[in-house]
Amino acid sequence: MRVRPPAGLAVVGILGGAVLLVPFVALVAGVDLTRLPGLLSSPSALDALGLSLRTALTATAICLVIGTPLALVLTRLDFPGRSFARSLVLLPLVVPPVVGGIALTEAFGRRGLIGEHLQLLGIDIAFTSAAVVMAQVFVSLPFLVVALEGALLTRGEAHERTALSLGASPLRTFLTVTLPLLVPGLVAGLVLTFARALGEFGATITFAGSLQGTTRTLPLQVYLERETDPEAAVALSLVLVVVALVVITVAYGRRDRRRDDRQTGARA
């Protein structure tokens, strides 16, 4: 039997839910279903959708490759300033994305700290699809790192210690024990990372610009259509909402199921 909150609180709580939900209801209501197929299959919409999926998937893969070691370093390696380093990782989560875009430009733009030297080598990042991916990695990497840190800290290191005491090398321990045990945290983290990358707007438009087929991702296309064809903007927004819903269902549905399983197990 759960302890119910006081009745007054429940009313305010329902209001809070409405604040979150009403805009989405309005969005769905605003879609003209008869025009939807046409709006979604225009060349510019398809370009934007294709680019968004390609770049967001690439960014997610990069986050996996660099974010997993980063989470391990932050949780399993003792070094001075570790807790400060852990909070620095959260910086892209809390600064406005447009600030992230400006920071990326200062670093990798044509006259940037590193971009200047890359330019001499003939490598130009700003205003390319690579810049889109970099902006997405920058804003979404913290999601993966935070999810993995949580998974690593909750589980502790007892299984890894067992593996080492059975004579396994650190690499074998990582590959055969740490990684498999991280899979649930990884899946949840990757789904959120992908969703954040797919929705990235501010850093992308600042650092990568808005060039159809090259840097104009779906959120940028929505913003552009809003000026010229609001109905198309609504239709494209709906696509992003549907993707987000799928993502939430996958990431949080799993977690809730596990929690329910545990509670049932405790009662049994």
Binding site: A158, R161, L164, S165, L166, G167, P170
Partner: peptide
């Protein structure tokens, strides 16, 4: 000697 080279079994 690090744990993995000790040849010491540990059961909790």
């Amino acid at each position: 000697i690090p744990a993995r080279r000790r040849n010491v079994g540990y059961l909790t």
